[in-house]
Amino acid sequence: MSQLFLALTIGSLFSLGTFLLLRRDLLKSILGVIIFGQAANVYLITMGGFSGTVPVLYGGENLVSTTDPLVQALVLTAIVISLGTTSFILVLLLRVYDEHGTLDIDRLWGQS
């Protein structure tokens, strides 16, 4: 059941991200990118599986019920990175607005 729920969550996050990414408003498309990245993170955490097929220690085969901790470390790293990039892109967005006075993609790239 949790597998299905997670799959649905990941799917809807990806589709929401893609939908927002294709908007004309730059802020919305950035939100789309961020959601897209978070979807990738959620996806990554499911990749460890919930049955503990990949033990970290030698002789850990009998600890069948453990969840793989490696993916959690990976996701933590990915989250930290996405925090950095997210804050950078938001500040950059502010600069774009300062420089161009608009966040409409058509007008931003049309004016050259």
Partner: peptide, 13 residues
């Protein structure tokens, strides 16, 4: 590091 960088982002924004 994280506190410093996040706070400087905050004060920048």
């Amino acid at each position: 590091t994280v506190t410093g960088s996040l706070l400087s982002i905050l004060s920048g924004v």
